[in-house]
Design a protein around this nucleic acid. Structure first.
Lengths: 117, 117
DNA sequence: TAAGCATATTTCTGTATAGGAATATATAAA
DNA sequence: TTTATATATTCCTATACAGAAATATGCTTA
């Protein structure tokens, strides 16, 4: 995972553009109108998004229709996966803690759900 | 989803710190050594991470042990969810396209898997 | 209380980049 | 071929922020 990929989405207007494009492909003008941004800025942001692989463009007459590409999101998803193990461990530890409380308090019945340690 | 959250991870050294903390809690000095960073910079990055909720600290004698918190990652995960629908639609459209090719080519058997349109 | 280690904070500087304004390019229509 | 529309590009400026160096704070032990 490169920080560069995240930095592209870390700019508020750029993130807005990406979120807008979730609804489907849009020409530049539409994006300007909906987000109340000036055209040159939108073009520049789209250029950055394009270089990072977040969007692709399809010319249509004088318009240029931009749409999202899934690959970078999948890359982020894959990266997040390496943290899911960490979450699970966290929950295991919480689980251990709750079970310990339970045992300390009443020492009567064993655990009812999975526990690793 | 706030761009602010992503911007915190978009800084390379900060991302490195986060990735390091996946392996477990670490005192500041350890982080400095392992990442070859100067202590004041690490403290400042940790401060940013802390304010954004990515880490929490537990003092231990003169040391301060930092560890990851799961909430911001869950937030990112939730945000990514809203793009999974988009992926699915993308795959559906690819599916449609492949099916259409297939039909155009041989017009014999119907589809064998889910199709929305 | 003094001394030592671990960490935090402050100040300064350089750099990257987002936005504004003007202009260039490309396609379509008259 | 001129004009209009849609988008891209260039140049400039201001701001945010990461790193360096120096210093401050806090905890521990003698």
């Amino acid at each position: 995972m490169k920080a560069k990929l995240l930095s592209v989405l870390a700019e508020p207007n750029r993130l807005d553009i990406v979120e807008l494009l979730r609804n489907g492909p849009q020409p530049v003008g539409e994006i300007c109108n909906k987000l109340k941004l000036h055209q040159p800025q939108v073009s520049k942001h789209l250029n950055v998004l394009s270089k990072a692989g977040f969007v692709e463009v399809h010319p249509e007459a004088q318009q240029r229709i931009y749409n999202l590409r899934i690959e970078p999101f999948q890359e982020i998803d894959t990266w997040l996966n390496s943290y899911r193990k960490f979450w699970k461990d966290s929950f295991d530890r919480l689980d251990d803690y709750l079970i310990k409380l339970q045992e300390d308090e009443m020492k009567k019945k064993g655990k009812s759900h999975g526990k690793k340690k």
